[in-house]
Design a protein around this nucleic acid. Structure first.
Lengths: 224, 224
DNA sequence: CGCGAAACCGAGTAGTTGCTCGGAAAAGTC
DNA sequence: GACTTTTCCGAGCAACTACTCGGTTTCGCG
């Protein structure tokens, strides 16, 4: 069985030892790309820092760009399930709770996968990685747009997509900021992000959907 | 008078011809750094694309990093007056008008100096340029914080600086987004940015709207 | 003009980079 | 064990990089 050959790999690692090595190379590449940018990073350094040899690196990866591509693919694959659960609608949730869920989940993901931040941030100067970041962001916009469409079918599509894009962008940039702030302030920043977006959403589109025949919803009294 | 020798220049250009050349080199470097990142950019390409020779480039700039440093300094110098007028308080202005002024002025600046966007964006992988971007952002945070302090001396300083940082970050990221969006939608994005920040500010710190009730912004053909 | 200073040039240099290749070691299979 | 396949290695190569240098052209000014 050939599980669809990866075009980013010159040869698929068959033994566990080699698979781990490939992963370790990717982990290191992620780190080095984030530190000095794609252009300035050297494959020799990546290999050495990954505790292997350039020979081994090029045994599996045909060239430097393939490294970036494989990295990008890995991000997409890893974050896909998060997006899937995130962007599935649950009618029992208020709009504001939806925002909270999105922001909190992404924040948690970034805490657990620090290397993903530069990708979302767009700080990695490589066409492949930049494209991956944009794909991720587009998926987020589309998902939020879908959620909005379900809740407020009366809002014009054009306006809706603008709102979705704004929400996605603020989410992204604020979470990146939260990631760079001292750990003790991280929660504060995340909460401010949620407050800001919820305020914007409410004012823009009108959070409580009175017209829709929605089953009653619990109203957690949270705000001031 | 000797206007304090520039440490980024190996020799100061004395003739107009040379000064223009230096500027052109900086303009090109800005463009090339933005396109491919500092690490991947080559000085030979910069020289060629600037319509000059590497010899001339190195006649004035001692090395590649100095190029980035000079570029950073030029940004700081160019944007300083904008910040100065922006962040000076005018008591006649409402808080919301202050926000509008800040966002509009920065947007105008970015429209007139497209090369500045990547710097603010943090997309330029060079310690010097990244530091310049951060300095700019810090200045913006400090300025907003000052404005807030004057208007709401009762708000705790710690909270105030958080709010200022949030406002500055959203301003930055949204203006970068506005810059990358089709020109026809740019105004829309800028306006949404203002609405969002004003809403956040009002809710957070309670902007006292003395006379007029808060203007219900843009509710196009939809009732709630 | 003339002449010194400033500006300009680009082939060349030392060093670095991405990447190859032949062979040694380890793992899998019988 | 013996034989095959996979994995690993790192010296070395062609290409490219940042940067130099000696020489030429242009400017400023009397």
């Amino acid at each position: 069985m050939t599980p669809s050959a990866d075009p980013n790999l010159r040869r698929r690692p068959r033994q566990a030892r080699a698979q781990e090595r490939v992963e370790r190379i990717l982990d290191t590449a992620e780190q080095v790309f984030a530190e000095m940018g794609f252009g300035a990073a050297t494959t020799n350094q990546i290999a050495q820092q990954a505790g292997t040899s350039i020979g081994s690196l090029y045994e599996f990866f045909p060239n430097k760009e393939a490294l970036a591509r494989a990295l990008a693919d890995r991000y997409i694959a890893r974050i896909a399930p998060v997006y899937d659960t995130l962007l599935v609608d649950e009618p029992s949730l208020l709009g504001s709770d939806l925002i909270t869920r999105i922001v909190e989940s992404l924040d948690q993901y970034f805490r657990e996968h620090p290397g993903a931040v530069p990708v979302l941030n767009g700080r990695l100067t490589s066409p492949e990685l930049a494209a991956a970041g944009e794909r991720l962001q587009s998926a987020l916009v589309a998902g939020i747009d879908r959620l909005l469409a379900v809740r407020r079918p009366d809002v014009a599509a054009e306006h809706r997509v603008t709102v979705a894009a704004v929400i996605a962008e603020v989410t992204r940039s604020m979470l990146v900021m939260a990631d760079q702030v001292p750990l003790s302030r991280r929660r504060v920043v995340v909460r401010e992000t949620e407050r800001m977006i919820i305020g914007y959403l409410t004012e823009t589109i009108g959070d409580p959907p009175p017209s829709v025949a929605s089953p009653r919803v619990k109203a957690p009294s949270k705000r001031s």
